[in-house]
Design a protein around this nucleic acid. Sequence first.
DNA 1: ACAATGCGTAAGTGGTGACTTACGGTAAGA
DNA 2: TCTTACCGTAAGTCACCACTTACGCATTGT
Lengths: 103, 103
Amino acid sequence: MAYQSAFMALADPTRRHVFERLRGGPKSVGRIAHGMPVSRPAVSQHLKVLKKAGLVQDRAEGTQRVYSIDPKGLAAIRAWLDQFWEDALKAFQAEVEKKGVSA
Amino acid sequence: MAYQSAFMALADPTRRHVFERLRGGPKSVGRIAHGMPVSRPAVSQHLKVLKKAGLVQDRAEGTQRVYSIDPKGLAAIRAWLDQFWEDALKAFQAEVEKKGVSA
DNA sequence: ACAATGCGTAAGTGGTGACTTACGGTAAGA
DNA sequence: TCTTACCGTAAGTCACCACTTACGCATTGT
């Protein structure tokens, strides 16, 4: 049941922005924070939340800390979505057939 | 770009609980609120947010208002996830090949 | 017309979280 | 060793959001 923290984590725009910066590949904290409208400690705090949600992972590389995307968190959301999607679509189609809703 | 409000909407546990109550099919506000630890107006407010995010839709049925799941919101999240998934996995695999990470 | 039901909204409050600056700790270079 | 770079954490502040009660509106039944 880790999709809860994953949703919480991705809800914040700034945090999602941090997360999306890792899409192209691993980056250090400094490089992530560079050019962002918030301070570097703020980015660190966001990364902490993302890590706790299983969305990112980190490794030490000399004096700097490199973060990368952890597929585990995304997989959790995807699993929840897939399960929900099936039931919801089924109920939705049953509703369409019963009521004849077009739009 | 509606996935932003969708994530925001699904981040709150109570609101997600409201949303999940619609999985089995359309329900009136009263039936949704019945048995929940929050008041009925609170449920109304949550439904308002969910509707704005494209996650639910409503129709009038006599004196009561029936809410059901709107696939549009889920589709938005799924699209974002799919797009992200592809890029992230690609970068992740490139990282695995380069570094030889096993776990 | 009047009462009753079902719901949305207004107004106000408490708690949480996102941000800041300041500090401490670790690893590399001179 | 001393400095420098890079980062996480502590402490404090401020805005926002989830919730409550009170109220108003529309629809149905008598």
